[in-house]
Design a protein around this nucleic acid. Structure first.
Lengths: 200, 200
DNA sequence: ATGGGGTTTAACCAAATGGTTAATATTGCA
DNA sequence: TGCAATATTAACCATTTGGTTAAACCCCAT
């Protein structure tokens, strides 16, 4: 028996699509309703306002995605494997939801308050990472580098291809399949790139 | 004698601010008019439509900024200096206009057609860069690396701090001054990071 | 001064948009 | 079966928004 999606799920899925495509300001409630195959009034029956719908989508989608990425850092017990797992997990997650990074970034720029608290979930992973860098430094495994800057670089190398996707695919003349292959390849090359540049 | 800005200039400047803050969809013509200290009708007197105003702002701002960054690659005659100049020029330019990267990226994601042609101005710099990588490879200066991927990494390391600024400053508890210092420091550390990881 | 071109404004308009209402259809259950 | 709660819809509303119009204003060459 085919379990049909509940109306609420269909709405959230439709809203996710429309919001990530058009952004909060550009998204139209009517478009979400159409995408979900329902009436606009029904949309407001389930989610009283656009803001509320937005939060419903954002919190679910973003937290699910980012959560398991940060977790790789918390679980790691030495630096190089931490980097490898962080990068490959990040890239694999985002392949499932390629518009998510740009969406998060975009909304964070428009409304820094209220969304940032969600980022705080990653603080555990962050401090764990800083600790791993310190340890590796003490053991003489890596050169002296600002651990915060290293984290910035890791996130940059992971996220940027998704965020700048239209630009990259255009500059390098890639189609969707080529983009996908590039990301899969980067699961290996990005950790190599990072580790080569910090290894002692 | 103080040369006052012409009305058209004031409009463009105001529009740039509003568009970069709110994006195309979120920007309001009234807000641009207010910011410029003029009437909304006068806005339409100078720029017949929102789209036209948007293009006026975008083409000027983006082309001016990106133009001289790509130029650093065209002018360079060996790889490592090319990387150094590209990075420092990029970072310095974007410090003047910190919202520009996010703005470009964001609009490129919403409307890939029509804006992409502007990116093509960079093709000269791109092919020059690929050539420099090949040469360095032949001379045995660097390890075997996909030059396109190297370019992606360079752009990622430059652009990402600006694009993800609210997230970064929040995660690492930075204020505006700390962010600025971080960018200035990266003029040196990013080229080091890149070159260390590709040098033979 | 004055008439005419470019500039600026107040008032206005039509369409789009987020949101509401009241009535109808469906479902679960006593 | 019948009734109450839930789900769904069509029609409607108030506000916002991009855009227009026609009149006023300013400046300067005649």
């Amino acid at each position: 028996m085919v379990e049909e999606a509940t109306t609420e799920q269909r709405i959230l899925e439709a809203a996710r699509k429309v919001f990530t495509r058009k952004g909060m300001a550009g998204a139209r409630m009517q478009e979400v309703a159409d995408e979900a195959g329902i009436n606009k009034a029904l949309l407001h029956y389930y989610f009283r306002s656009k803001q509320q719908l937005f939060e419903g989508v954002f919190k679910g989608s973003a937290q699910r995605q980012l959560g398991c990425v940060w977790k790789t850092l918390e679980e790691a017990d030495s630096l190089f494997p931490a980097i490898e797992r962080f990068v490959s997990t990040y890239l694999e997650r985002m392949l499932d939801e390629p518009l998510m990074p740009q969406f998060i970034i975009s909304e964070l720029n428009r409304d820094p308050n209220g969304l940032l608290e969600m980022i705080d979930r990653g603080q555990g992973g962050r401090s764990r990472f800083l600790h791993l860098v310190e340890e590796a430094l003490k053991r003489g495994e890596i050169i002296d580098i600002d651990p915060r800057e290293l984290l910035v670089n890791m996130m940059a190398l992971c996220a940027h291809p998704f965020i700048a996707r239209p630009m990259l695919t255009h500059i390098h003349g890639m189609n969707d399949e080529a983009f996908r292959r590039m990301i899969l390849k980067r699961r290996r090359t990005v950790p190599e790139f990072i580790i080569r540049s910090i290894r002692n």
